[in-house]
């Protein structure tokens, strides 16, 4: 099952990642697929990116974790996850039995953490790895690797030594020079870039109860439609600095968003926050994209992409 004209091949030299559609559910917004099965048919998805997995199980952050803002939300989940061992034992067989393509999203605090995770991914011959070097919600590691081109290069090189399949690096927008990070990622040996992760944000709600002010605040990662212009800018910057395939994300909710991201340089897409509002969004967008291609007599997604990129 699926939509033939959406077949997408992400390719870097001899390394490829073939997916049945360019629409991927973003990490942390789709769990490990099991939670969504009541609501939708994931047959039309290209893939899902798993919840960020660490070596050990993590309970995540204390206190409020979600804060809604206009056209977006702030989260500070703090990488709560089952840990790699449980993932391999309990979640991997489900994904395999359902024939769902996935990117294993990994995060760590030290280079050694990432090396071990990459080694395990290789051992189980996981087809694609998405390295999270940009989680703004954990105190140590992670983001620090992602913001310094030298340490990012070193980290990616080490992961590459341990992992031979398709290596994707998820970049942070919380930088003043994403081009240098993209270049470091490519030089480190990655096959693909996904971007952008959430932006640092602070949500404050303050109310007067008649006697005193009461406040609630959450500091974390901002996502949703409000970050789209920043994401588009970042994707264009990345495109101008590397030829690696790009999986773009940041506020995608509709078909025209996909076209905009293609023009900026995207080869595939991830849908994040929108999954929370509309569980069927990935399926809906895949069907809509496929219909558009068919109705307008494009051969397939690849041809549509090239046509959009020719737009002056």
């Amino acid at each position: 099952m699926g939509l033939e004209n959406l077949k997408t091949i992400l390719k870097n030299k001899e390394k490829t990642f073939e997916i049945k559609s360019p629409i991927i559910a973003a990490s942390g917004t789709y769990g490990y697929n099991d939670e969504f099965q009541d609501f939708i048919d994931s047959n039309y998805f290209g893939a899902i990116s798993t919840k960020g997995i660490t070596l050990e199980k993590r309970l995540g952050n204390e206190g409020d974790r979600i804060f809604e803002v206009q056209n977006g939300m702030i989260n500070r989940i703090g990488l709560e996850n089952v840990g790699i061992e449980t993932f391999i034992k309990e979640k991997l067989p489900i994904l395999k039995s359902k024939n769902i393509d996935f990117l294993l999203n990994i995060a760590g605090s030290t280079i050694e953490d990432y090396e071990k995770l990459a080694e395990i991914a290789q051992k189980y011959n996981i087809k694609a790895l998405e390295v999270n070097v940009s989680c703004p919600n954990v105190k140590s590691g992670c983001l620090e690797f992602g913001l310094n081109p030298d340490s990012l290069f070193k980290l990616i090189s080490k992961i590459r030594e341990n992992y031979n399949n398709f290596l994707i690096v998820k970049l942070s927008p919380n930088t003043n020079n994403i081009k240098l990070l993209a270049k470091a990622t490519e030089n480190g040996g990655a096959d693909c870039i996904s971007a952008i992760n959430t932006l640092r944000g602070l949500g404050i709600k303050i109310q007067f109860d008649g006697q005193k002010f009461i406040k609630k605040s959450v500091k974390g990662g901002l996502s949703g439609p409000c970050i789209k212009p920043i994401a588009l800018y970042m994707i264009e910057e990345i495109r101008n600095s590397t030829n690696l395939p790009i999986i773009a994300m940041g506020g995608i909710t509709k078909l025209s968003d996909l076209f905009e991201f293609i023009l900026a340089g995207a080869d595939a897409f991830q849908i994040g926050t929108a999954n929370f509002i509309k569980p069927s969004i990935c399926t809906d967008l895949a069907i809509e994209l496929s219909d558009f291609i068919e109705k307008n007599n494009f051969k397939n997604f690849e041809e549509l992409k090239n046509k959009i990129k020719e737009t002056k």
């Binding site: 939670e35 609501f39 974790r65 989940i77 929370f276």
Partner: peptide
Amino acid sequence: KVMACSIGVCRGCI
């Protein structure tokens, strides 16, 4: 608790 996904995915309402 404030929820994002309401189906157990995002781990926001822990």
